[in-house]
Every structure is written in C-alpha cells, then in structure tokens.
Design a protein around this nucleic acid. Sequence first.
DNA 1: ATTGGCAGTCACACTCCGAGAGTGCCAAGG
DNA 2: CCTTGGCACTCTCGGAGTGTGACTGCCAAT
Lengths: 343, 343
Amino acid sequence: MTRMVSERSLAVLRVIVQDYVASREPVGSKTIVERHAFGVSAATIRNDMAQLEEEELITAPHTSSGRVPTDKGYRVFVDQLTDLRPLSSAQRQAIETFLGEAADLDDVLSRTVRLLSQLTNQVALAQYPSFGSARVRHIELVALGPTRLMTVLITDSGRVDQRMLDVAHGLSDQDLSQLRSVFNTELGGLALADANDKLRGIPDLVAREHAQLVRDIATSLGDQVAVNRKDRLVLAGAANLARTEGDFSGSIFPVLEAIEEQVTLLKLFGEIELADEGVSASIGRENDGFGLGETSVLASGYTASGGSVARLGVLGPTRMDYSNNMVAVRAVARYLTRLLGED
Amino acid sequence: MTRMVSERSLAVLRVIVQDYVASREPVGSKTIVERHAFGVSAATIRNDMAQLEEEELITAPHTSSGRVPTDKGYRVFVDQLTDLRPLSSAQRQAIETFLGEAADLDDVLSRTVRLLSQLTNQVALAQYPSFGSARVRHIELVALGPTRLMTVLITDSGRVDQRMLDVAHGLSDQDLSQLRSVFNTELGGLALADANDKLRGIPDLVAREHAQLVRDIATSLGDQVAVNRKDRLVLAGAANLARTEGDFSGSIFPVLEAIEEQVTLLKLFGEIELADEGVSASIGRENDGFGLGETSVLASGYTASGGSVARLGVLGPTRMDYSNNMVAVRAVARYLTRLLGED
DNA sequence: ATTGGCAGTCACACTCCGAGAGTGCCAAGG
DNA sequence: CCTTGGCACTCTCGGAGTGTGACTGCCAAT
C-alpha cells in the first residue's frame, strides 16, 4: 500500500482520537479547527479526513456526522505514541506509599491491581510471577481426618501451595511424621523440576504397606509443582466496567464473563508480545478471538525476584485513554520490579 | 394494624410476584384471571389488589398499568414460602459430581460458588469457615532475602496463612532453623487463641541479640492468628449481574463495587440472621444501609469440620426468583455441610 | 362478597416536521 | 499542487401531536 497519509493527517488522527476519547462524541472538521490551532481551514481538514477514511483509520457512524477512530486508527495512534509524559509526582507518591506497606506477595499484587485500577479507571490485572526456578523449602503433611490428608508445599520464593487428599486407610501420627521427614530429606532444597523427577523414586524408600499411599501423596505434590508453574491472575476494578458501559455495543456480559474465566484472559494476556521497557497494546478486534472484540488490553512486564518476568496491565473498552493508561501501567510495572526485585 | 388482607389476596400477591419475576412486566387483573384458575372475575381480583395496595404490598408504576410487588410484598411472599419443593434429581446429581472432585478447602468453596451461581443465575457468595478452634500444626520461616522473611502458619484444620516481614539485620540459616524449632516446640499443638497468648513470652526464650527480631516474628504470627479468625469471602457469577441489568434502576456500578469491597458484603452477609435449617433473605431496601437497596441477599449456614458455622448464599436484584434460589442455596448448603463435616 | 359495565387515565409507539451538524465536491486562488 | 470558501445534500436528533391499548376505580345490580 502506498503511504497516502500526510504528516498533518496523522496529527488530525491524533486529535480525533483524543477528542473522541474525551467526549465520546464523533468529532467533525469544524470542531477540530476550533479547538486545535492547525492554521488551516475546515475544508482542508476534511480533505485530510478523507485520506484517513481511505486508509480506514477513521469512520463516520452516519452519513453526516463527525468521525470516530477505527480499531486500526487506534492502533496507529498507539504505535505513534512515543512521548509518554511521566506521571504527576502526586501519583508517583501514591504508588510508593500504597505499595510500600504490602505484607506479602499476595498483598503486593492485590494492592498493585487496586492501585492501577484507580489510576486508570479500568480493570487492572496482574499475573503472578512464575516460580520455575524456585526450590522446595518445606513439605508439610497435615491429617485433617481419618482418611483425609493435606499436603503443603513451601518454596523459598515464598510461594505456599496446599492440596487436599483422600487416603484409603488411616495413618498414625508416627507414620505421618516418618513420611514427613522422608519427603523433606529427599526433596528439601531441590528445584521444583528436579523435585518432580525425584518424587517418582520415593515410594520405593518406604515401607511396603504405605507404597500406594505414598504414590498418592507424590501425585499430589507433583500437581502442586506443576501448578506452581502455571499462571494465576489477580484483578481489580471490575466495577469500572459499569461506568464505561456505554462503550460496549451490547452488554458488558461477555467482558465480565471473561474476567471470571481467567483462563481466557490469561491466554490473551500471554499472547501480547512485550516491547522491552515499554507498554504494549492489543486493541479491539485484535482480541476478537477471545470474545473481547470491543475491548483493549494494555500490558507491560515486571520482573520478580527469581528473574522471572510476569505481566501487568489493564483492560477496558476500545475507547480508552491509551496515553494516560499506558503511562500508569509503565510506572506501576517499574515500581513493582523495583519492589520485588530487591533481594 | 388490622389484618385487612384476605386469604385470597395473599394468593393474588403470590401470583403477582411469580408472574412479575417471570416476565418483568407489571401484571394486571385480567392477566391473572386468564393465567390462573381463581374462579372469580377480574373485578374481584381488582378489589383484592386494592387491599394489597392499601397494605403497600404492591404498587402501580403508573396510574393505569399492572401492579408490581413492593419490597414489603416480596418480604411477605418469602415469609409465606414454606413449601420449598426439592431440587430435581439431575441438579442434585450435578452438585454431587461437581463438588465431589474438589481437592482442598479453597477448591471446595470455589467450586461451590461457581455451582451455586450457575444454579441460580445470580452472584453466589460463600464465607470461609472460621477456625477459632483450630490448632497450630506447623510454623515455617522462609528467608526470602537478606532482610526479608516469610512466616507460614499451618493449622490442623487445613488452613495455611503466610505473611511477609522485613527484618533489620540478616539471619544465618542456623539462626533460622533454631528459631523455627523454638516456635514449633512452643506453639505446636496449641489452639490459636492460646498460641497467641504464649507468643508474648517467646522473645525471652532466645538469645538476646535476636529478641527484637523475634518480637517482630511474634507480631506477624499474632496477626495471622487474628486473620484466621477474620472472615473471608469467595464469590462467583458476577457476570450474571450484567444479564439482569434491567432490574437495576441506575447502573450496576454500586453492586459491582460492593462485590469488590468485600468488607461491606461481609458485614451485610453477617447481619442476616439465620433461620435454623432454612434459608433467610434480606430484601431490597432492607439493604439500603449498604448501598444495595435494589438487591436481595439469600443466606444459609453450613457447618465445617470444627463445628464452626459459616454462611453461603446468593445476591441479586430484588426481582429474583426467590423460590428457586432458596431451594438451590439450601441444597448446596446441606451438601457442603455433609462434605466438610465428615471427619 | 361478587360481578359486569363504563368512564377515565396514562404510557407507549408512531409519525411528522424542522433545526443543526457535518460532509463531499467544485471551482477559484495562492 | 495544496488550500479555501461556498453550496447542496444527507442524516440524526429532539419535540409535538396523536391514537391505541391496557389498566384501574367506582358503581349499581345480583
């Protein structure tokens, strides 16, 4: 395709996006020359708009009303967005004080998303860092009942994972503490992946009568090791969707649904490729495959202690304030990296 | 107040509630005689409706349209609702298979609310059982970094609680394992309340140089003991709110907000007094104090292993199918009691 | 107590306009 | 070649007017 769009046309696109996002109303040529000092007449703007429409960057809801950016238009707008001005110092302050008080990882992430959703007025999401390189710190077996057992896995990265288990026949406290020490001796200090391998050999180490039981426990722990790799999501600010309701053609139902169905969201979130040091966006119909064709997702990466990188971002209607929101996501991601990386 | 409402009037109220809930449209006298075999004429129904209106159990949106139940009307309807017919066996089956596979407490509750939200098409909530009578099983200290420590508390009820902690100066692995054994020796097997008391004495038991550190750890563990008492909430089905959007006069924003702000919800949930073996309701304006004047909450109790009772229920617009939903809540609560009580 | 009848009241859906906003195109001017 | 003013055209949106239909409330008769 020939590049038909002049420099000024792009500027026009920019103000169309900005004004439309701000006012939720289609913006016309006259409004543009009034509100922005372009130094040309409305007719000229109209010619530029014709170009933009030719390129499918903007579109007119009806024959004769102002223009609205298309998804493609938002995309170009976002890609052009290089000069993200920094956050106000007040906001910066807010981040520090709010996140600084966090007690543990859960708390940090929960605070992070609440903060980010407030800064952006959108739904904020954060992925738990993966702990592939974490090591087994301690394994605990707890008898919950005669045939019910709980296994708890603690890793040195600070992650704790528990699981319940039905066992065929009862275990004495002695049996239990023996098993406990076997598991801890054998697996303590191992990386999760290695622990998983070694688990298979353990049933041979114990008394015959417990072999099956130990196999069950091993399976359970194996699951936990795997789960530790798997991603989890925290989010906040779902209420903001109700506020931006008008931006969704139908109901916000599919969006709320996707939010509950974290699997979908995780996949979508994971497919956004991260620009290093920056914030990436997936816009409107680009998310159609996930049933979220009217929403945009902004994502940035943050680095946690193990060097593992996870994602952080916001989700909202396609008509969102990309500029502000990207700044906020970037700032929070950076602070999070600083907070979690210091070990 | 004189009891002005005849027996038949109450029957009329009943069908008004049922029809209105089903159709979302005000129901008139003619419709009633057509759809229900009352054996009287429309005019008679109108007289009854006049009674009901007198008692403020129903109201007319405009001068001349059908009637709609008031909050008070719903209340009377619910209180009259004695004959809850049981769930279909298919649904009963679904409960068993779906909840039977659960792995741990988190999983049980998460499945419970998902199930309940599907059965009712509303938002489902469940309170974690409180573990006031639980005992300390194990305490784990994990060094996350030179000045960062994590404390993990495992109770014999299967609850695991972790917390992060900044410490002034580093600890060797030896120090750590010494502290670990002190805590476990001193506190292991104690009920949480007793453990909390004993915690204060522990700093005296260790080397002087660690006294401050130990105090910090003790504080952290004390918090965890307290948190263990405090309530937590799981919920699912928020997307259903979008489907019932028309039942909220304004936006669903305040409801979504309350759902995120679990504190409010917990308080509201806790104030509903439970009829034993039954399901209780808090209807419409009765929840006005919580900003939820257009929603109703159904609640039932379930009993977990320690004999501790927690709550389970659904939340939705005042115009909901109380009959079905109460049946579902009751059935799930009973099954949950059976599942968690067996030890 | 119940009933049929009848008058009265609104909400709602429909249509019909006029105003306003904005466009596309064109011919003239830099 | 870009820009500009002008002009005709299109289409949305709001308001006014209107008729229909669904109710109710009341009353007199049973």
